[in-house]
Computed example of a mutant assay.
Amino acid sequence: MQLPQIRLQSTSAQIQLNRTAPVQRIEQPKAELDIQQPSAEMTINRKRATLTIDQSQARADLGFKTRTQVLEEFVQDGIQGLMEGIARNAQEGDELMMIENGGSPLADQPARNAFDPPAEFNIGWIPRAGGVKVSYDPGSVDIQWKVNKVINNSRPQKAIHDYTPGKIEVAMQRYNSLEIDFVNLRHVGVNYEQQI
């Protein structure tokens, strides 16, 4: 017995994808460097130290006197001797003037002036303490700094960015289809039979 059949045959649709890859190009130019560092400026103001040693008094105590010192001493000794002589002469004149008051000034005065008074001697240091005068000025140092800042005229460069986006194209590679087929299909009517 042949049964009627309906045969269906279908084909699926297929999509075709055409892809173009994206292209990206990045270029970074080097920065332009312009950096300057001025030198620091240093100023030094210095007052020199001074050491003064005056040993003229110590040298004078040892007998090494300058011409000026010797002359000054001679002048002082002369003035003092003159004053002492004037005082002695005045005193002796007064004694002679008052001879009537008694005494023997004519005999006493020559005896008194005949001999020098005894010399006095004492222990001393040569040169004496403090004969050398020392003075010291340490001076000073003044240091001034001027630090100069960095001069930076550098310029960065922007990156060069070139980008082409990718794309995808969708196309139908194969369309879907459906085929219908009839097998053993008959129409039976009154006194009539037909195969479809």
Rank of each mutant, 00 (worst) to 15 (best):
Q2G: 02
A119N: 10
I44T: 08
A107Y: 09
D54R: 08
A119D: 07
V147W: 15
I26F: 11
R67I: 10
I53D: 01
D181H: 15
V132L: 11
N101R: 15
R88S: 07
S104T: 15
V183F: 12
D94G: 00
D142G: 01
E32G: 06
F121K: 08
N113M: 00
F64A: 13
I35G: 01
S135M: 11
V147L: 13
E32A: 14
M98F: 06
N113T: 03
K47W: 12
E169R: 07
Q55C: 04
A49Q: 07
I99L: 07
T68K: 10
A159Y: 07
R59E: 04
L17D: 02
D116E: 09
L8Y: 05
R67P: 00
G139S: 11
Y192L: 12
A49W: 05
S135W: 08
N176G: 09
D77R: 15
D181V: 15
E32Y: 08
E41G: 00
P110F: 09
E169D: 12
D181L: 10
R112L: 03
E41Q: 10
R174P: 00
D137Q: 14
G93T: 13
V141H: 06
Q55I: 05
I168M: 12
V132W: 12
P156E: 03
I196H: 01
K47D: 01
R46L: 03
V70H: 09
L82R: 08
V147A: 14
V150N: 06
N101K: 15
K146T: 15
V183E: 06
S154N: 03
G103W: 06
R25P: 04
F121Y: 13
A111M: 07
R112G: 01
D162S: 04
K30L: 12
G103H: 03
L71D: 01
F115Y: 12
N122S: 15
E193S: 13
I86E: 00
Y136A: 03
K146E: 13
Y136E: 05
Y192V: 12
Y192C: 09
V23Y: 15
N89A: 06
Y163G: 02
D142I: 11
D94H: 07
L33P: 01
N152Y: 04
I26W: 12
K65V: 09
L71G: 04
A111P: 00
Q109N: 02
V170Y: 04
E95Q: 15
A21L: 11
Q109W: 02
E32R: 13
N148P: 03
W125F: 15
R25A: 04
D142A: 08
Q157V: 04
F115L: 13
L178Q: 03
Q28P: 03
I180Y: 04
I180M: 05
Q195G: 07
S10K: 05
L106Y: 04
N191M: 09
D181N: 13
Q195C: 02
I15P: 00
N184F: 05
I79R: 10
K65E: 06
Q9K: 15
T164R: 04
G131Q: 07
I180G: 00
A90W: 01
I44R: 06
I6T: 08
L62E: 03
Q69F: 07
